[in-house]
Amino acid sequence: MSKKPELRGRAARLARLLPAAPSQAARTPFVLLVVLLLGGGLITLLLLNSSLNEGSFQLTKLKKETQELTDEEQALQKDVDKYAAPDALQRRARELGMVPGGDPAFLGPDGKVRGVPGAAPGTAVRPSAARPPAALPPASPAPSPTGTPAPPSASASASARQPATPSPQAPATGSPSAAGDPSAPASASAGGAPRPPAIAERPAPTTPGR
């Protein structure tokens, strides 16, 4: 390698296109740049990945939390529904000494009463009602737990206080346990789609009425 071989003609022209002696000075920063880019990329990727994974963990955690809160909400809603159910309201109202409103009566803006207001039906208490003193005046909110009957004058005072326009939410009648009462006798016809018996063959009745 002490002496360069002589190039001629075409080869010489081609040789001129090649860079002369490679530049020693430019190489180091380039290598550094490449290493930096590679390393940086790697680290970024790592960071990205770990943050994604972290997000995934957080997602799982939050999902679990949502689930727990949903469960709690549903459980609480169930409790609310239990209190808001009509027969529960009726039971509570009875416990507070309230009775069904009876005949509706309306108080107009001009002070005119429409309908016939009457005394609250104080004695109409079913055996299944929680407490007997249905005629307790509304003024005494807590009937005694022993069930002391109301004084005879109570119904009069109750009638005076009876609101002219009953609230639509106020339960009117009924026993708390009545809704699901299984004691009624089973009916003969099937529940699905009972086939009405043919009419023509039967003797026609002559004594129905009213």
Partner: peptide, 23 residues
């Protein structure tokens, strides 16, 4: 209407029970 439904159901259940009716 839930409230009217309840009033109706309560009244009929009570009477069916009292009258020992089929339904």
């Amino acid at each position: 209407d839930r409230d009217i439904q309840w009033a109706a159901q309560d009244a009929i259940t009570e009477q069916v029970r009292k009258s020992h009716a089929d339904r």
